[in-house]
């Protein structure tokens, strides 16, 4: 059974005159596998990520067809709580992902929403911070962090939910070299833990992380490297 699967996904934004951005796209990611999606700017890579995470059509409107499955369960029939604990999404811009004064608050937000007890939250916060090598930043104010550190904290905030699927939308694009190395290590560690990882990445630098590579062009996805 695939961890994440998108079947026959088509999408068009109403404001673009109904012109299709994605047409009958099929993608899948197995447990413990890292899949990279690449393609030119504006072809719909982020849109595909949003559809696979359920953000489209729940939060962003658009004409979407096809089905998304998490471990064989249709996303359409899953509650928001189930979606949040199954799939974690890391976006490109760290500034729009942090909204609490301190790192600890930021990491606690997701587990609090899922009504986890305090000892469990504490354990998850510790683990997530250790994963991104930022244990000593627990009580630091997020505004004082560099862009790379903020992105690592945003990743830790996603990891504190312990999702079984990770979707990373150009997560490396604003990182310094030290943060790139930490995020790469985190991705490898998550793979070893059996998480399914779907990431949008155009840089050749990170191809080694991938088990398979998809290319998106003219609304179609094709597997270029297996």
């Amino acid at each position: 059974m695939n961890a994440l699967e998108g079947r026959q996904i088509s999408f068009s934004y109403p404001r673009h005159g109904g012109q299709a951005l994605l047409t009958n796209v099929n993608v899948y990611v197995r447990r413990g596998e890292c899949v990279i999606l690449r393609g030119p700017s504006g072809v719909g890579k982020s849109t595909l990520c949003h559809i696979l995470a359920g953000i489209i059509p729940r939060s962003i409107s658009g004409q979407v067809s096809g089905e998304v499955f998490f471990f064989g369960e249709n996303l359409r029939f899953l509650s928001l709580a189930r979606v949040a604990e199954t799939v974690g999404v890391l976006f490109q811009n760290p500034d729009s992902q942090l909204f609490f004064p301190t790192v600890e608050d930021e990491l606690a937000f997701g587990p609090e929403n899922l009504c986890l007890p305090r000892p469990e939250m504490d354990k998850r916060i510790n683990e997530a911070l250790a994963m991104v090598h930022m244990e000593e930043y627990r009580l630091v104010e997020t505004e004082t962090l560099s862009l790379g550190e903020r992105q690592r904290i945003a990743l830790a905030a996603v990891l504190s939910l312990q999702p079984r699927i990770l979707i990373l939308d150009e997560a490396f694009s604003q990182l310094d070299s030290q943060s790139v190395s930490v995020v790469r290590d985190t991705i490898r560690a998550q793979k070893e833990l059996g998480r399914a990882i779907f990431m949008v990445e155009n840089s050749e630098e990170h191809v080694d992380l991938a088990d398979r590579i998809y290319e998106l062009q003219d609304g179609q996805v094709r597997e270029v490297i297996s």
């Binding site: 953000i55 962003i60 928001l80 974690g88 009504c115």
Partner: peptide, 22 residues
């Protein structure tokens, strides 16, 4: 963008929530 991130982290997913800070 903020609303999307909050929802992706389960904001409003359950009728109640716990609090880490007391």
């Amino acid at each position: 963008e903020l609303a999307i991130v909050m929802e992706a982290r389960g904001f409003g997913a359950l009728p109640t929530r716990t609090s880490y800070l007391d």
